[in-house]
């Protein structure tokens, strides 16, 4: 074939499974770079905002809680800073993944003109970015407070990671469901705010299960984030803290939500008009 100067042949699209996987990873990577550019631009702090925003949020909360020390931690001798950090950072992740998922497909519909960009890639890219952002925010905050002598690193990293894993799974599942539903039904978007608000008190951010009466304990464990919070805090504070989890239930709920989200996303293209 005649090929004029300066033109580059396109890489063969898809092919075998490994080729297809590599292509999908390339696409998700490109979407993440693009997302960073659109969201934070190239001016002022740029993508540092991804870390600064949760940092400011936590700093504010820590100040307020420190003033009210003891009153909210039920007299247990938990380090307020550790309690707030293990509470608010997962919360930030959850809030961000959910908010980022709202109308995610619509906002990126023009990119679907490139057939290697799949619906799910759009959400995946955003979710991975939020996971990264939260992890970096944690590391930066933890390092600064540790260096200042007011924070101790988690006593049991295994539990700490496991808790985050559950939390991430729940957040991503909710992102998938919200992302798909907001494209399918217009009024769902309006419910996201109230839903998040009403889930807040039961999500486990503000209490330890041990502080609750026995009958309520079993009930709140239906919310997978409660088990996740118990694990994260168990990892942070070590065996001195009594934790209660129901991992089979948390696993089942997370998997059910993930499956629902993926199924909804499979069908979302029928509801999306590509310009």
């Amino acid at each position: 074939m005649p090929s004029s100067e300066g033109r580059t042949a396109p890489a063969v699209l898809a092919g075998d499974f490994r080729g297809a996987l590599r292509l999908q990873l390339t696409v998700i990577g490109a979407l993440m770079m693009r997302e960073l550019h659109t969201r934070y631009g190239r001016e002022n702090l740029g993508f540092l905002w991804m870390v600064v925003e949760p940092l400011l949020f936590c700093a504010g909360v820590i100040i307020i809680w420190s003033v009210a020390q003891g009153r909210y931690t039920h007299g247990s001798h938990l380090n307020v800073l550790g309690f707030v950090m293990t509470g608010y950072l997962p919360l930030t992740l959850w809030r961000h993944t959910t908010n980022r998922a709202v109308h995610c497909f619509r906002a990126n519909a023009s990119l679907l003109y490139h057939r290697q960009v799949r619906m799910l890639d759009l959400l995946t890219a955003r979710m991975i970015l939020e996971l990264y952002g939260t992890a970096i925010a944690y590391l930066v905050m933890a390092f600064v407070f540790w260096a200042a002598g007011v924070y101790e690193w988690p006593k049991d990293w295994g539990l700490f990671y496991l808790g985050w894993l559950y939390f991430a799974a729940f957040s991503v599942a909710m992102g998938l469901i919200i992302g798909a539903l907001t494209e399918m039904v217009e009024w769902v978007e309006k419910l996201v705010g109230p839903l998040m608000y009403f889930l807040l008190p039961v999500c486990g951010c503000f209490f330890m299960v041990d502080w609750l009466p026995g009958s309520v304990q079993e009930l709140v464990l239906w919310m997978p984030t409660v088990s996740a919070y118990e694990l994260i805090r168990g990892g942070q504070f070590g065996p001195e803290l009594r934790i209660h989890t129901n991992l089979p239930l948390a696993t089942a709920v997370c998997l059910a939500l993930l499956a629902t989200g993926l199924l909804l996303c499979r069908n979302v293209h029928r509801h999306l008009v590509i310009e």
């Binding site: 580059t8 042949a9 396109p10 890489a11 292509l23 390339t26 696409v27 990577g29 490109a30 770079m33 693009r34 990119l111 490139h114 290697q116 960009v117």
Partner: peptide
């Protein structure tokens, strides 16, 4: 840049 990445050129 985005297009160069996803078409691997």
């Amino acid at each position: 840049r985005f297009i160069a990445r996803i078409y691997r050129t």
